[in-house]
């Protein structure tokens, strides 16, 4: 296979003469090239460029006492990609307005979250613009990013007693899909929601959703 072509064909008749033998320096590279491309193909096909990314979440710890949240939206993730949501507290007399929506990027839950969190989104956008205008020329891109992130975080984490930003409580039904939960957490970053928690769904909420599903009007 890997024989070396010494160029013997070229000067066939002149072998008898006494002359410095002209050996060609050409090597048949075909097998080597074959092998190189074989390896190339192998590595191209086996290499994975997209490393998985990570979504960091911190689960709330049950500390016994219930904390009161002022500006809260509760999202119920149900079976078959359905989303129900209500604003504020779930009143025991059933007067809470529970609405249904979906994951549609234009008309679904994203729009509702953005509407509810309008103030914070505008504030963050203005903050980013101001910071970039003020520091873009004097500091490096890296430290500017750090600065922006820090300021954005302070808006996200602002305590409830001073101009509260929206808090979202995500309650996932055991029958809903894990992908939906991840998608919902991802929506939080789209709508600039800094405070959100993943909590178990309560029987009362399940009941309300069942009533709506069975065609009954929202009580």
């Amino acid at each position: 296979m890997a024989d070396v072509n010494t160029g013997g064909d070229g000067g066939g008749g002149k072998h008898s003469k006494k002359r410095a033998k002209k050996t060609s320096t050409h090597i048949d590279m075909t097998p080597m090239v074959d092998l190189a491309f074989l390896l190339l193909t192998f590595f191209v096909l086996t290499s994975t460029f997209s490393k998985p990314t990570t979504m960091e979440i911190t689960m709330p710890v049950d500390e016994g006492e219930k904390k009161k949240v002022f500006h809260a939206l509760t999202i119920l993730l149900m079976e078959d990609d359905e989303i129900y949501y209500y604003y504020g507290e779930l009143k025991e007399d059933g007067s809470t307005q529970v609405n249904k929506t979906n994951f549609d990027p234009d008309k679904g839950i994203r729009k509702i979250l953005i509407e509810k969190n309008r103030n914070a989104i505008d504030e963050i956008r203005k903050l980013k613009k101001d910071l970039i205008a003020k520091y873009a020329k004097s500091v490096s891109q890296d430290s500017l990013n750090r600065l922006v992130n820090k300021e954005v975080l302070s808006v996200h984490r602002r305590p409830d007693d001073q101009d509260p930003t929206l808090t979202v409580i995500i309650k996932a039904d055991p029958k809903c899909k894990y992908g939906n939960v991840v998608e919902m957490i991802d929506e939080m970053s789209v709508a600039e929601i800094g405070k959100y928690a993943l909590v178990d769904i309560s029987p009362a909420e399940k009941e309300i959703v069942e009533t709506i599903k069975s065609g009954g009007n929202n009580p």
Partner: peptide
Amino acid sequence: NQFNLLTDLEGKV
């Protein structure tokens, strides 16, 4: 109480 959920990167919105 802290977890890393593995995800694939998709377009930024």
